[in-house]
Amino acid sequence: MANSRSGDSMTDRIVRVLDTFTTERTMQTATEIAARTGLPASSAHRIVGDLVAAGLLERDEDNRIRLGMRLWELALRGSSALRLRQAALPHMERVQTLIREHTQLAVLEHEEALFLERLSHPDAGANITRVAGRLPVHASSSGLVLLAHADPPIRERVLAGPLRAVARETVTGAATLRAMLTTIRRRGYVVAPGSIEAVSTGVAVPVRDHGEVVAALSVVLPRDSATAAAIDALLDAARAIEKDLNRSR
């Protein structure tokens, strides 16, 4: 792709446009997109127009822009995330039937926990997680499991900080976090009360594919809930998911 005068390639500029969309910001005007990318208005409007023409973005009757169905379609073709989600979902549903709160599946992406799926009961407690949303790996229970089993260079980059406090009980000390990760690897699960929200406790276990940790399976419980049943249900589900993943290759 040709470079702009600033040195950005066309691919870089397209990614900057797409990155302006978040789980909270799903609709924008082309002018808002231009402002958020820092691109010249004419360039941003041209890129938005091209992406709309290709179906990767869509424009509504009020001239607002959203991500297009074609982008979703392309993302799912041959996606490892789709294979993982399909293997996990039946077992997540069994956990959810038992726990009746929130059951989630996350993967490590750019040193954050990226959530692929979430099942929730109508009467479940607080949970800020969204499908396709991200949480810091050092704070969320899923992230802690993923970080504990990440490649050492990734782990060391995160431990080097800064470790931002998401809630009052988020672990922000590198030495304390390092010890916690060692304990997670030894126990095979984590219980993280108040790490994301003071009123909630996250419980998470690793999900393996041919022995390699590829995801974290978690539940979010009210703060003072007992966790033993959740741990057992998650460990059983993780083993079942691994068996299904092994068969699907």
Score class of each variant (00 low, 15 high):
Met1Asn: 15
Ala2Gln: 15
Asn3Pro: 03
Ser4Ile: 00
Ser4Thr: 08
Arg5Met: 11
Gly7Glu: 02
Asp8Gly: 06
Thr11Gly: 11
Asp12Thr: 04
Asp12Glu: 11
Ile14His: 11
Val15Cys: 11
Arg16Trp: 12
Asp19Leu: 10
Thr20Ser: 00
Thr22Trp: 04
Thr22Lys: 11
Glu24Gln: 14
Thr26Tyr: 09
Gln28Leu: 01
Thr31Cys: 00
Glu32Tyr: 01
Glu32Trp: 00
Glu32Leu: 00
Ile33Asn: 01
Arg36Ala: 10
Gly38Glu: 06
Pro40Leu: 08
Ala41Gly: 05
Val48Leu: 02
Val48Trp: 03
Val48Gln: 00
Leu51Phe: 04
Ala53Gln: 08
Ala54Arg: 14
Gly55Thr: 07
Leu56Val: 05
Leu57Gln: 03
Arg59Gly: 01
Asp60Arg: 08
Asn63Arg: 15
Arg64His: 05
Ile65Tyr: 05
Ile65Cys: 03
Arg70Val: 09
Leu71Ala: 14
Leu74His: 12
Leu74Gln: 13
Leu76Asp: 12
Ser79Val: 07
Ser80Thr: 12
Ala81Thr: 13
Ala81Cys: 12
Ala88Met: 10
Leu89Trp: 04
Leu89Ile: 05
Leu89Arg: 15
Leu89Phe: 04
Pro90Ala: 04
Glu93Arg: 15
Glu93Pro: 07
Thr97Lys: 15
Thr97Tyr: 11
Thr97Gly: 14
Leu98Gln: 13
Ile99Arg: 11
Arg100Asn: 09
Arg100Asp: 03
Thr103Met: 08
Thr103Asn: 09
Gln104Asn: 15
Gln104Phe: 09
Leu108Ala: 04
Glu109Lys: 14
Glu112Gln: 15
Ala113Asp: 08
Leu114Pro: 04
Glu117Asn: 14
Arg118His: 09
Leu119Ile: 08
Leu119Asn: 03
Ser120His: 12
Pro122Ile: 05
Pro122Asn: 00
Gly125Arg: 14
Ala126Arg: 14
Asn127Met: 12
Arg130Val: 02
Ala132Pro: 06
His138Gln: 05
Ser141Gly: 10
Leu144Pro: 06
Val145Met: 06
Asp151Tyr: 04
Pro152Glu: 11
Pro152Lys: 13
Glu156Val: 01
Glu156Lys: 13
Leu159Gly: 06
Ala160Trp: 01
Gly161Val: 01
Pro162Cys: 04
Pro162Gly: 04
Pro162His: 06
Arg164Ile: 10
Ala165Lys: 15
Ala167Asp: 07
Arg168Val: 14
Val171His: 12
Ala175Pro: 10
Leu177His: 09
Arg178Asn: 07
Ala179Trp: 02
Met180Ala: 14
Leu181Cys: 04
Thr182Pro: 02
Thr182Leu: 12
Ile184Pro: 05
Ile184Gly: 05
Ile184Tyr: 10
Ile184Ala: 06
Arg185Asn: 01
Arg185Val: 02
Arg185Cys: 02
Val190Gln: 05
Val191Asp: 01
Ala192Gln: 07
Pro193Arg: 04
Gly194Tyr: 02
Glu197Leu: 15
Glu197Asp: 09
Val199Trp: 07
Val205Asn: 03
Pro206Thr: 01
Gly211His: 02
Glu212Lys: 14
Glu212Leu: 06
Val220Lys: 08
Arg223Asn: 03
Arg223Leu: 04
Arg223Trp: 02
Thr227His: 05
Ala228His: 10
Leu234Phe: 08
Leu234Ala: 02
Leu234Ser: 01
Leu235Phe: 11
Leu235Gly: 06
Ala237Leu: 07
Lys243Ser: 13
Asp244Arg: 15
Leu245Pro: 09
Leu245Gly: 05
Ser248Met: 13
Arg249Trp: 06
